[in-house]
Nucleic acid binder design. Sequence first.
RNA 1: GCCCCCGUCGUCCAGUGGCCCAGGACGCCGCCCUUUCAAGGCGGUAACGCGGGUUCGAAUCCCGUCGGGGGUACCA
Length: 474
Amino acid sequence: MPTSEVPVVRFAPSPTGWLHVGGARTVLFNWLFARRTGGRFLLRVEDTDTERNRPELVDAIYDSIRWLGLDWDGEPVHQSDRFDAYREAARQLADAGHAYWCACSAEQVQARAKERGGPPGYDGFCRDRGLGPGEGRALRFRTPDEGTTSFDDVVRGRVEFENRTLEDLVVLRSNGTPTFILANVVDDAWMGITHVIRGEEHVNGTPKYLLIGDALGLGYRPVFAHLPVLVDEQRRKLSKRRDDVAVSDYRAAGYLPEAMVNYLALLGWGPPDGVEIRPLAEIVELFRLEDVTPSPAFFDVRKLQHVNGEYIRGLAVDDFVARAATFLPPGERPRQALQAMAPLVQERVRTLAEVPELIDFLWLDEPALDAAAWDKAMVRGKGAREVLDATLAGLERLGDDGWSAGTVRAVLEAAAVDAGLVGAEGKPQLAKAQAPVRVAVTGRAVGPPLFEAIEVLGRDATLGRLRAARARLG
RNA sequence: GCCCCCGUCGUCCAGUGGCCCAGGACGCCGCCCUUUCAAGGCGGUAACGCGGGUUCGAAUCCCGUCGGGGGUACCA
């Protein structure tokens, strides 16, 4: 029985893979609920399957949770430390006749089901054989033949199951280790979990969970809240196999943890006032489990990108530089280039990973030349030679001390006029004039504001690239 | 097959009998701003799966149907 007055929730990861976004969303909602209600958020590592277990992943999961800016209370429980408790529970079930020993192998169960042509699953072969424990024997829980089991789900309302549709499930493997549901029930009761907030895929296991708890005489019943699954574009549950979903991947792709968490909060829930992008602290205040939507949510990377862009633009410049620096190639030049261009770059990227490609021409000795950009600005664009010549001449007259975005701009304007690129009122058409210069200097058709970039690049490099481009143009 | 869940714009979230010929956000389209690209501003596109009820009145309630998803392991 819960000994605590406050809500207690838990996240129970299995160390068989990295934390993926679906799991992260589950962590978040548990965390939000706990923080909102003044409850406790616990962690429980479900490593009962000694075969698939990968202990080294436990730290990776903790890291991802921490990276998201979330935390947990107390020390995580490891189920591998509690096998005695589960075996004791299993013994209790067997003694009371709620479970029986089964000698069927998984293969035999499958084979019989196939032969029957009927539904897959266990057929109750050993139900009344009165077998005792022994080599190769697993303990199965005997589900009731009649009656119904139901519960009130916070997000779905009442859910009801007919007991006869429930198959007898293994609670203790033939190797003596407990299975998921047994360990789950025992630990939830032991840890005083008041609210089980987990993925929708667990709905079907809930009646078995409840029945086992009753058979154990736990007198314990948590509140359930089954969160909608996260789906991909095919509307299938996000899968580690099919989809690229590890939280660490998003970190590596240049997403900010604040943005990630904010976006995740929007899947299956929404703030009552419709303001979607806001600090976690505010979300904590607004969050209510009862408001969670029951229908599956599509994990939309494009919206994530938008949210991320908002957060990036909201960063203090120094903070932005510090965070983006991780994504730069090593060396002083990239670092200095970023420092000099930061405010202009910050406004133009949606992920930190986009930063280097935007300004790499500032530290590369020979930036790659985009063929399409060259063709459009130099070959098909009007007056490219004239613009280049006039710009070259103008910039050559500028000394190092007169070198600034402002003076460069003035040179470009004059060059535009020289090249005949003028508008109706004789105004220089800067948009057209800068095109060939941009391609010559950066190799690309798009990038940060040109004059500022040229200021940072410096006189020598700029003139060199301009001359090279002019020579190539012929 | 059986069990369970879900069903409002392409996507996420609002909407819980009349305020909705459905609102916000992302995306998309257009315009403005503009040295490119972004950002920003303005405008637009686009949905209550279908069929029956109940009701003066339904996106909102009921039934059916169709569709989608999840589970059905000695994985969790």
